[in-house]
Design a protein around this nucleic acid. Sequence first.
DNA 1: GGGGAAATACTTGCATACAAGCATCCATGT
DNA 2: ACATGGATGCTTGTATGCAAGTATTTCCCC
Lengths: 233, 233
Amino acid sequence: MSTAPYIVPIRRRAGASTRMQVYVALSEAIVRSELEPGRQLSENELASQLGVSRTPVREALARLREDRLVEVVPQIGTFVSRISDEAVGDAQFIREALECAAVRRAAELATEDDVRILEENLEAQQRAVDAVDDEAINALDNAFHQTLCELSRHPMVWAISQRAKGHLNRVRRLSLLRPEYLGGMLDEHRSILTAVERHDPDAAELALRYHLRMVLSELPAIRATHPDYFEEA
Amino acid sequence: MSTAPYIVPIRRRAGASTRMQVYVALSEAIVRSELEPGRQLSENELASQLGVSRTPVREALARLREDRLVEVVPQIGTFVSRISDEAVGDAQFIREALECAAVRRAAELATEDDVRILEENLEAQQRAVDAVDDEAINALDNAFHQTLCELSRHPMVWAISQRAKGHLNRVRRLSLLRPEYLGGMLDEHRSILTAVERHDPDAAELALRYHLRMVLSELPAIRATHPDYFEEA
DNA sequence: GGGGAAATACTTGCATACAAGCATCCATGT
DNA sequence: ACATGGATGCTTGTATGCAAGTATTTCCCC
């Protein structure tokens, strides 16, 4: 029934528990929409495809359920969550609250070295945009936000934010593929960095909040493109 | 070696998965410091004491690890986390960010009914303080903050906040037992509610932030009382 | 008596076997 | 033809068995 084209034999590396490798593999596959929203997942099927037993698969699915990326119905099945306005709204609210609080601290605490690192990231973003390298754009965008969070001296904030915004990541992932958004994204990043450099928490928060909301503004267009990825409203 | 006096045979109720019952039981036992920080836990021991097998115990421990309430060291053991300044600081930062953002929305959205419910909660708090009923105080305090969060229309915020602040809950739990704090707590709650009633987000955020920091101010005294509960600085 | 090494008793991580429940499909009876 | 009941194959939840690794303990030798 549910054929599984995209997945993903993992090879077990020393130093990382297999359940964490399974979690990362599945999480990325879902965020990239390689495992399409609504699709049914089978613990047995995933286990055999990944080359491990059900136990680590099961533990990874439990974690994904906490991220709201899958829904587990006892005795029925496990399904990739469809994107829902409610979940996206929750994720957006949480991300704004956490990252804006973090960027305020970042603006207070950032050193010249910190700013320089962020500058270099932005230059790399410019190159990635010019080269139309979606993978690089996504990675650099992530790194930019993560670095900002970590400047708050509370690295945990990034981890929590990252996990809370599973649905949002899928939307963001689809947004980044829309070229008309890329220029705006760069300008917004520059505005944030400028405020941080000036040690202006209010301006930094305002710029970040605007930036985060822009990602959301792409949502209707994405929903129109992939209606089957979304929950019925 | 690690004798286990306090725990807790759970009886399996229909409608709730046993792993969730195990999680709740262990979580409460840790927050109440019935399972003391630093203590070693054994999956086998817990399983036999709770009357279930290792599997649900293991899954509950995985969740507790994500809450940073336990630390799992492969091939060595599982330990109740000691309270650390870093973890408490992280939890405080995250709680402030989330609950302050929520209370701003709450101040914008609260209806007269909402305010009335919170008023009744405060009156019950007054009665509980007069009766020196620690259990009731704790429950009502929790309910007050939860209700505020839910007024933001993002109930998920409370769930995330609740889980992120595991260490903080232990501190708060110990704080509530210090009678000299109770009067101040009530006044602070009243200030928050007044601001919400006036639909004044700035005042509400300010009052809540002050209130949340007060809990933290008890930390040195608690540390002095229970030095063995804390990580070496 | 003291020191070292091997055996032992634990730990968690992973794999597998068993149990319970739901859906579907097919056969059978009306 | 249609409805109904049962067998079958799936699902997740739980229990248990096996493997690998570490700390401790004990025994033997010096």
